[in-house]
Design a protein around this nucleic acid. Structure first.
Lengths: 188, 188
DNA sequence: CCATTAAGTCACCGGGCGTTGACTACCGGC
DNA sequence: GCCGGTAGTCAACGCCCGGTGACTTAATGG
């Protein structure tokens, strides 16, 4: 009988990446305050001290997660004509997994924590809101960007952080309405 | 020279009410996790032990705050024709103070905390979402209610939890756009 | 085959948390 | 005028957190 799982081969770079990945998944499911260094370490199968060693502090680790996750969040791609449809689909059905809107999810989870709020705001401004506003263009771009982003955040919270009890038909109806609203904002 | 402020007169009921009020203000500004029993006690000018004594536990205190605050949240009043306008004004300018949408603010602040999320979800469903959906009526009421509530939540987060750097003109434009979107959802 | 060095672990620290039981001081009624 | 009960305080407990220095173990080059 095996008492130990196969010990991870000694590879600092791979271990560091594994920690970052585990942290990303944790922070996408729990808030900054609720995620513990020991939780992340247990997920990877290492000692908690190693997490502190590799990333300096919990705050630095969170920043690293935000930066790493932000790379994959290419919200703005594809043509403008289907933006509303795409975003509505993402926000409502939100196929799990890395990339996509996970970056937004991580930010929303921890935006309540005073320790993480500042980081979240700065990161969201730089990596999400700023580019979005610039991409949008046109008259009232700041207002339209802000409103569109707010709507996406709100639907995200409604469908991810709160339990979902909508039927498939209702989801489809909601998707359609949301897409129309967003698209109207995009088009001006 | 006075070394002590006037000691609070011995009145259990008044002290209890003062604790509840202080807790309400704290929970409206910080998340469940960030608010400490000692913080609340300090605001009132009593010992932290008294807070536990009067309300049993932090969780019970939070529930009491949600219930007490919910009474004043009469979202649904006034005529339907101006609902969008009223809500947009509330969400964007959100004159501070008890009542109004403070209940929603308290819920949003702590929705990230796993310890408070369940309470928030149940309370929000019972005191906010359910009545709202019922009041809305008409075709697709659940979908429209959910979408309208999500939009309000999103704008709330955007304007309260994130710093506001919109000019008065931009605020007015945003208010107008948001009001139109909400009103369209209300009317069907 | 061993020495060196990096990778990872272990024990522990200081601090903050919510909560509790023992204690004190005040106030109304006799 | 004191006395019982209640409002409020105090000190402490157990727990968990993030972080650190000393130690152990494994890989690697000679």
């Amino acid at each position: 009988m095996f008492c130990h799982v196969a010990p991870r081969p000694r590879n600092a770079e791979a271990t560091r990446a594994a920690i970052l990945e585990a942290a990303r998944e944790r922070f996408a499911r729990e808030s900054y305050d609720d995620v513990g260094m020991r939780d992340i370490a247990r997920d990877v199968g290492v000692d908690a001290a190693l997490v502190s060693r590799y990333f300096g502090s919990k705050e630095d680790l969170f920043i690293a997660v935000l930066n790493a996750s932000g790379d994959k969040t290419r919200i703005i791609e594809g043509d403008r004509a289907t933006f509303g449809q795409r975003m509505a689909r993402e926000a409502i059905y939100k196929e799990q997994g890395p990339g996509k809107l996970e970056h937004m999810l991580i930010m929303l989870r921890s935006i309540g924590s005073t320790k993480a709020a500042e980081l979240v705001q700065r990161n969201g401004q730089d990596r999400f809101f700023g580019p979005f506003e610039q991409w949008l263009g046109g008259p009232d771009a700041p207002v339209r960007a802000r409103l569109a982003a707010s709507i996406m955040m709100g639907v995200f919270i409604g469908s991810e952080l709160c339990p979902d009890d909508l039927t498939p038909d209702q989801c489809a109806a909601m998707e359609q309405r949301m897409a129309a609203i967003l698209q109207a904002l995009i088009d001006g």
